[in-house]
Design a protein around this nucleic acid. Structure first.
Lengths: 340, 340
DNA sequence: ATGAAAGCGCTAACAA
DNA sequence: TTGTTAGCGCTTTCAT
């Protein structure tokens, strides 16, 4: 057998090829009799329309390109899974590309995506230069950045409220009575890393507290080295805010296993994301929740609205998250301000 | 601008449309002069060949379908990342489908894959019935099962040596002097889960040791419940072999955080996979390594060889792994047999 | 409601 | 080496 074409179905059903097409084309109409004959013949032959051929004519491939960098941070595989499920339910599918965060690499990958005539692009955990987003705009391919923003650009993006999240963490740690506070940030080359840091340090500064910041690069080993460095100083911090959970686990491992310190008694640790692992017994990490489902839904709504209406303007959506208190921090003493 | 066609490039370069095609078709030839003119015009216009159109003619989409179920077990995102990278390097791309392990669901997903004329299919962490693999064979679509086998079937698969792995774990625990040994298995509906269990229990039985087995279903919560159940018995185990690392972390969390027990002093725990997390300080899990890179390479070699030569027979490849000793178990006393 | 015919953008066979 | 031509399998006018 191999491939069955609409023509073969047409012959078997005793109708024209275009009749077969109409039966399988969502918007088209055919008489009940025709529909029945065609469906029967198609079922017998195991016919299904060829999406490639359909895509060529309609100009819509129903493929969404997903560019992703770090799959070792649990947040992203989970996002991928949710995105894939939600898009599958709407009849779209995901063509995955892995790229490092190097702009040239991302650019190459985007070109390859365009070769497949994808209907839209989602980037997760990777940044895009404005030239690159311009290239997509020229090619009329809508794009949504997931968990990343672009500073000057007019690209769509979905993030959590990172500035506000940083602020909430700072206020929480202050309420816990911490005075010596450090921040191991997300990669400061990413908007996400920068915003969290900015919201955090700005709030501490306003409270008259100096903050030591080191760039953790979203990397376990870098975060570990930063931890050792911070704890080695004259006045080591008694609280560390880490730019995401993935690094926070490394920080906790280093503190406890390598340095023999207690979390939270010696050092409190706060993360960002609230990946499922943060709730596991081994960590029980206090963290800022990024509401994954809502972020995914917003991403898909935004992207598909632009796929269906190319004139829809780009939007930057921020989703609010809550601080989830667990046992990697102590209870706040100062409860005058519970608005973490 | 939007989409640039080969015809537009041809006009600008002052050559025929097929000349343009030849310049961009790997196997074809054109004079240096033509190549230069075409490349220049193409660059100016930002032209790239339309993969869909190419796929229609050649019958090769250069798309590989990947069906995956559990992205919460770190092993699979990592496999996805490696597969994607390796395939990208060879000019293939991955269309991802998430499916539950329900056969109907997998069947639907496979149909959708075929709609896109994928050149091959990789299933990771999902089983396939023999009717389903037959359907793929009828459609001439090669398929490789990653980390799953099919019992009677003649499908290609790449797994680790699961029977042998189970044996090695049993021998190791015996050498450590354990007498009261339990197994929280991987889902017994999967070949992988069954084989590990069989190799394990068979070896224990030969040593005259009874083994208690519970099905952990590859699920954290099920594994936790099994742990509570096992430890609640009259003679609780002093060692537990868990069917994969993902569940083993849950078992350790339960043992330590919920029950206040020490690992390995009260109970030794062994996992399977050796995901990166197993080496993290919080767990330091003794586990059977599944050599991910070698499994991925084998999967791609196998699949692409079948894509290029449809007559290539299916093969079931097993990759050997080593037992990685960490601190979730004690050192073996009996060292007469170090061949774990 | 249906069939005939055009053509999506490309590759491949065929001539020249 | 090059241009011309014929499709790949389908959707979509356009007649009927």
């Amino acid at each position: 057998m191999g491939v069955v074409t609409s023509l073969q179905v047409a012959e078997r059903a005793g109708v024209s090829q275009s009749a077969v097409s109409r039966v399988f084309t969502p918007g088209a109409s055919a008489s009940a009799k025709t529909v029945e004959k065609v469906k029967k013949a198609a079922a017998e032959l195991g016919y299904r329309p060829n999406m490639m051929a359909r895509a060529m004519i309609t100009g819509k491939s129903r493929i969404i390109g997903l560019v992703v960098a770090y799959l070792d941070n649990q947040f992203y595989p989970l996002a991928l899974e949710r995105l894939s499920n939600a898009l599958q339910a709407k009849g779209y599918h995901i063509l995955v590309f892995t790229a490092s965060n190097d702009n040239d690499h991302v650019a190459r990958v985007v070109e390859e995506l365009m070769d497949y005539q994808v209907d839209g692009i989602i980037t997760a955990s990777v940044g895009m230069s404005s030239e690159l987003t311009q290239r997509c705009e020229d090619a009329r391919i809508p794009i949504v950045m997931f968990n990343r923003g672009q500073d000057g650009g007019n690209v769509s993006s979905v993030t959590s409220a990172n500035l506000d999240g940083g602020r909430k963490v700072a206020e929480f740690l202050l309420a816990c009575g911490h005075q010596s506070i450090a921040h191991i940030s997300g990669w400061l080359g990413s908007s996400t890393g920068r915003d969290r840091k900015l919201g955090f340090t700005r709030t501490l500064t306003q409270a008259g507290i100096a903050s030591r910041v080191m760039d953790g690069m979203y990397d376990r080993e870098t975060a570990r080295a930063a931890t050792l460095d911070l704890m080695d100083r004259r006045t080591p911090p008694d609280a560390i805010f880490v730019g995401n959970d993935h690094m926070a686990f490394s920080v906790m491992d280093c503190l406890r296993t390598e340095m023999g310190l207690s979390v939270p008694n010696d050092v409190a640790v706060v993360g960002y994301d609230d990946v499922p692992m943060a709730a596991w017994g081994a960590y029980n990490l206090t963290t800022m929740r990024q509401p994954l489902n809502r972020m995914v839904d917003a991403t898909i709504d935004l992207l598909l609205s632009q796929v269906e209406d190319k004139t829809a303007p780009p939007r930057a959506i921020e989703i609010d998250g809550a601080l989830i208190q667990r046992s990697s921090t102590r209870k706040p003493k100062d409860t005058t301000n519970e608005g973490f």
